[in-house]
């Protein structure tokens, strides 16, 4: 991952593709590095790291949308 301006370039080794992603995606990728989490655990960790207690619904909405995008880009695996 290489930061550029307010965004980050992510080179995805398995596909050889490069993605330009937002800070929220970088935060989620950091959390999912070498571990599997469910959406509640991702939201909980982000709320704790970014001092967002009490914003649960908004976090879940944003994280859900980003996870959908990341799965569509094949940079995360969704496990049923």
């Amino acid at each position: 991952m290489r930061p550029v301006d307010d965004l980050t370039l992510v080179y995805h080794r398995p596909s050889g593709m490069t993605h330009v992603v937002s800070p929220a995606v970088v935060a989620i990728l950091d959390l999912l590095h070498e571990q599997t989490l469910d959406i509640g655990e991702v939201c909980g960790a982000l709320a704790q790291h970014h001092d967002l207690d009490g914003e649960g619904d908004d976090i879940a909405r944003v994280v859900g949308a980003r996870l959908d995008e990341m799965a569509a880009m094949d940079i995360i695996d969704r496990i049923a």
Binding site: V4, D5, L7, L9, Y11, R13, G16, M17, T18, V20
Partner: peptide, 20 residues
Amino acid sequence: RTETYVRLAASSTNQALMGE
């Protein structure tokens, strides 16, 4: 830098083939 990256990558004929 983002715009520069996108324009350079789009102008390259082999960047994607060269991998990382």
